[in-house]
Write a protein that binds this DNA or RNA. Structure first.
Lengths: 162, 162
DNA sequence: TATTGTTATACTCTATAACTATA
DNA sequence: TATAGTTATAGAGTATAACAATA
């Protein structure tokens, strides 16, 4: 495998490209998230195969496992996406028999979303997987640094609600 | 108006939704980035109107301003997107007269990308705008906290190259 | 043969609007 | 009238594959 660059100005070596934008937290947040997301996807699809979940599908399944009986409207609000966009996600989770839509006595418009055994298992397995994945991804971080990062990101979410 | 939830455990109040996923840095990174990105888009499109740039277009313009004469292939590598995907971005920047494609003597395959006056102006204005925007977004953060966050995000990028 | 810029194409993600069946 | 779920549709954003011109 040869991966030689043709004629890059090679102003700098293996140094991470310096840019004006590096001063911005938002830009660094983006680069960091892109990194973690692609790693997440690779990890989950490698180790879970057909049962692999996208970040958003995992978040949906998580809410359903933790709040059995939640409706799609409530779920869409929590995830911050439109009701219409949730349909295909729920269809997919139902198709894999991870969750079920069940009728709610008293209001025939809504359907409660409940986790099924297979869904609960996939959820637990995914969580275990991500724990290992994060451990590897942040292996250069001390425990304190990880806690700091978590606290700082949490502080941002806290103040600028959603 | 009867708002009886079918069988929700209604464990918590208006507290920011606690979730299993909150333990993961990746999840918090995603929520934080989504927040900052939507704020970025709103700010830039409100204050720049027709001259508003998407995050990726801004990154492209930034590289062109800082490395005048860069080629599309080099740029695509730096941005981490495919050459083909860059075409419409460059078309757009050229259409607004922010940049120009100029021939390179010696290699008629490539076209050097150079910033134009209008592009440099839009770039400077956008940077000023984002500085103010970040200042507001992180108003609850101390200077030390902001530096810490920047350092921690930088550390992640540094180690897991791109 | 390999590379640059490009087109064609498709897939994912998400948003808007409108429909239906209920309430 | 208003709400829950759904469909249809469209727009970003990005990826793959192939092509012409050039190296």
């Amino acid at each position: 495998m040869n991966s030689k660059k043709a004629k890059l100005p090679d102003s700098s070596e293996a140094v991470v490209n310096k840019s004006d934008l590096d001063e911005f937290i938002g830009y660094n947040l983006k680069r960091a998230y892109m990194l973690v997301r692609s790693d997440f996807r690779a990890t989950v699809s490698n180790d879970m195969g057909e049962d692999g979940l996208s970040p958003t599908s995992l978040a949906a399944l998580s809410d359903i496992v933790q709040s059995p009986g939640i409706t799609q409207s409530e779920l869409s609000r929590q995830l911050g996406i439109e009701r219409s966009g949730l349909v295909s996600i729920i269809d997919d989770l139902q198709g894999r028999e991870f969750i079920a839509r069940t009728p709610v006595p008293g209001d025939r418009r809504v359907q409660a979303l409940v986790p099924l055994t297979k869904g609960k298992a996939a959820y637990d397995k995914t969580l275990t997987l991500i724990r290992a994945h994060e451990k590897a991804l942040f292996k250069h971080f001390t425990k304190t640094e990880k806690q700091q990062l978590l606290a700082l990101l949490g502080k941002l979410r806290e103040h600028e609600i959603p």
